[in-house]
Amino acid sequence: MAMDVRERKESVEIAIEAKGGSVASVKPTRQVQTTIASKNVCVYYGDKQALFNISLEIGKCEITALIGPSGCGKSTFLRCLNRMNDVIEGCRVEGVITLDGRSIYDPKLDVVQLREQVGMVFQKPNPFPKSIYDNVAYGPRIHGLADSKDQLDQIVEDSLRRAGLFEEVKDRLHDSGTGLSGGQQQRLCIARAIAVNPEVILMDEPCSALDPIATAKIEDLMLELKENYTIVIVTHSMQQAARVSDRTGFFHIGELVEVGDTSQLFQKPKEKRTEDYIRGRFG
């Protein structure tokens, strides 16, 4: 399925492990290196198919936004990328998803390792009901990233700083994380995610529970984080997608209708359905 609509500037060969172990080659089309590539991904919940042949490449150090009406499968797709669908009973994923050329559904790959590389921030801020410090230190602790208390302190401080939260909480690191405001909680969750130094951060409607000011802070933060991390964001807000993302994918009823550079997609959508959605005719 040739869904690639991007301009061909330079071709980088990336090997993708197909299901049977045979190697197919896909030719990406942009200068940007591909971090995650999905090929013909289908997801089933029991008998119901939720995603149909999604093929999408996510570029390194870019923000990719996934938009679409409710129930279109964009969150489902996002959750495939760090295998959070594994825990949902009756959920089955077909197709190939690679992270840096390596299949993430490879039985030899430990899901713990994958989630260390692919962090996630949820729709509703969900800090652990522990101290701010322990929230951020949890990942480094379980993955054994810090050898000493000092090192751990440093990781916690760095992560909080990069999440733009350190100045606000430095005097109460040992207070409960649930005592923060909604926006602060979400930034704490981002700090928690980046504390293990992942390659990719998945964000599932991170601002839908926040007020506009907190939203603006998170968006600024995303633009800063883009320097070092690949970000995939699912959002309901087209304005948000337009503001922050480099590339946008439009999902509709389990299909990836169109994907392209954000400015192109919003200004000159190629598909009728995309145009209708963007113009607000449905959704």
């Binding site: 760090n82 969900n126 949890y138 995610a193």
Partner: peptide
Amino acid sequence: PDSIRQGAMAMGASKTQAIFH
């Protein structure tokens, strides 16, 4: 709430770790 389990598991905790921690 499930968000606690998911949060822990998204951090790379195993199911047992998520439950016991």
